[in-house]
Design a protein around this nucleic acid. Structure first.
Length: 274
DNA sequence: ATTGTGGCCTGCCCGC
DNA sequence: TGCGGGCAGGCCACAA
């Protein structure tokens, strides 16, 4: 499941291989995959003949800046922003550029190269192509996505941010950390890993954390993202292999609790997560 | 406003 | 061997 680390890897792949190449054609065979009123014709008009100038990311949202059209058109519309292509990968979406992909494997998703799962293809000349493959169609392609709806990016998190995020919320800690409008980037697996490492109960009311716990949480998020990013993704956490029925805590051997918290399957250690 | 719930999508895996 | 049901989770609409 692409969480922030997988999306960041995809962003780097785009930066290395997709920028400044002219888009010569596109296929968008699945209308359902295009969101907010976008259709293949409008996408064609916006993209074909142009190039991407930058690959950005906000939480799990991938953003590709598109160069302006003709110089005349650009000066006519000086007051407007250049268009931005937004890509969301949902749970099973995966990005390829030419033959290359950002992730060796994707958890919970088939890695079979089924042509029917190809939701967007941008052609760079005859040989090059950018491909979004998504078996379950939970991802999305949109134009000019609303970045304002996302909270602070988890990779740019600061200490004061944590206070704003948790505030006095009475919601479960896990729900708040997964709320993309407060903190953008953490998904189910990373959140379980972070809370396990920080020794905090996912069901605790978020606003009830004291200042020492908030400081600990901030440090653990930063460290966990750094470590797991270096290891290769969200699924490389220390809790991951125990995250199944019958699993025990890697720290103390206690049978893990499996619950639904914030509407998600949640594993935690009842002994040391408080 | 904040919090909680259910549905979307579909491949895969389990048990019968 | 086939089949049904449950499960995975990011995101959104909607309810309380």
């Amino acid at each position: 499941m692409p969480e922030i680390l997988e999306v960041e890897a995809s962003r780097r792949l785009l930066e290395e291989r997709a920028l400044r190449r002219r888009i010569t054609a596109l296929d968008a065979p699945d209308p359902w995959y295009l969101k907010r009123g976008l259709d293949a014709g409008a996408l064609h008009d916006t993209l074909v003949g142009r190039r991407f100038t930058a690959a950005r990311r906000h939480g799990k949202l991938l953003l590709l800046d598109i160069e302006p059209g003709s110089p005349a058109a650009a000066s006519d519309r000086d007051h407007e922003h250049n268009p931005v292509l937004g890509l969301r990968f949902g749970m099973t979406g995966q990005l390829f550029v030419d033959g290359h992909r950002a992730l060796d494997r994707l958890e919970y998703a088939s890695n079979r190269p089924e042509p029917a799962w190809e939701r967007l293809i941008l052609h760079f000349g005859v040989r090059g192509r950018l491909l979004v493959r998504d078996p379950r169609r939970l991802g999305a392609v949109e134009l000019d996505p609303d970045e304002d709806r996302l909270g602070v990016d988890a990779l740019a998190l600061t200490g004061p941010d944590i206070d704003r995020i948790l505030g006095r919320s009475r919601a479960p800690l896990k729900a708040v950390l997964m709320d993309q409008s407060r903190l953008a980037g953490l998904g189910n697996l990373l959140t379980d890993e972070v809370l396990w490492r920080a020794e905090l109960d996912p069901a605790r009311r978020a606003g009830a954390l004291d200042s020492a716990e908030r400081r600990r949480l901030h440090r653990v998020i930063a460290r966990t993202l750094r470590e797991l990013g270096a290891r290769g993704g969200s699924h490389t956490g220390d809790l991951m292999h125990s995250r199944e029925p019958g699993g025990v805590c890697p720290k103390d051997g206690t049978p893990l609790a499996r619950r639904t918290v914030a509407g998600r399957t949640t594993y935690s250690c009842p002994r040391h997560q408080r």
